[in-house]
Amino acid sequence: MEIVAYGVLADEEPLLRDAFDKSFAGRHELRCLGLFLDADTVPTAAGHEVVLSSVNDTLDAEVLRSLAKGGTRLIAQRSTGYNNIDLTTARELGLTVARVSYYSPYSVAEFAWTLALAVNRRLVRAAHRTREFDFRLDGLMGRDLRGRTAGVIGTGKIGAAFARIAHGFGMRLLGWDVAENPDCLALGMEYVPRERLFAEADLVSLHVPLLPETHHLVDAEALGLMKDDAILVNSSRGGLVDTDALLETLRAGRLSGVGLDVYEEEAGVFFLDRSLEVMTDERLARLMTFNNVLITSHQAYFTRDAVGQIAQTTVANIEDYFAKRSSDNVLVRPETS
Rank of each mutant, 00 (worst) to 15 (best):
V97D: 00
A222Q: 12
R164T: 14
P209R: 13
V307Q: 06
T72V: 14
V63H: 01
G142K: 02
G188T: 12
L331T: 04
E319A: 09
L140G: 06
R99G: 03
S326R: 12
D183A: 15
N120V: 06
L123I: 14
A10F: 10
G7P: 04
L223T: 15
L246A: 05
L232M: 11
R164P: 03
N84E: 03
S326Q: 11
A230L: 11
T130V: 15
L52I: 15
T130Y: 08
D328H: 13
L284N: 06
G26P: 05
E2L: 11
E110G: 07
Q299T: 13
N292E: 09
L52Q: 05
F169Y: 07
E29D: 13
E282I: 06
E49K: 09
Q312M: 10
D138K: 15
L64N: 04
R73F: 06
G94R: 08
F24E: 04
A179G: 02
R283T: 12
V241E: 01
L197M: 13
G154M: 02
A166L: 09
L87F: 01
P212N: 13
L145C: 02
A285M: 05
G71D: 14
L95P: 00
P14F: 01
A76N: 05
S54V: 11
L9C: 04
D177E: 05
E248T: 13
S107E: 00
L52E: 04
R196G: 01
A76G: 11
E2H: 11
R121D: 08
A46I: 07
L64W: 01
A201P: 05
L217H: 02
S205E: 02
A316S: 12
V51F: 04
A222M: 12
R91M: 06
S79P: 07
V262I: 14
M226Y: 05
S79Q: 05
F290L: 03
L331Q: 06
V293W: 01
G81T: 09
R136M: 08
T243R: 01
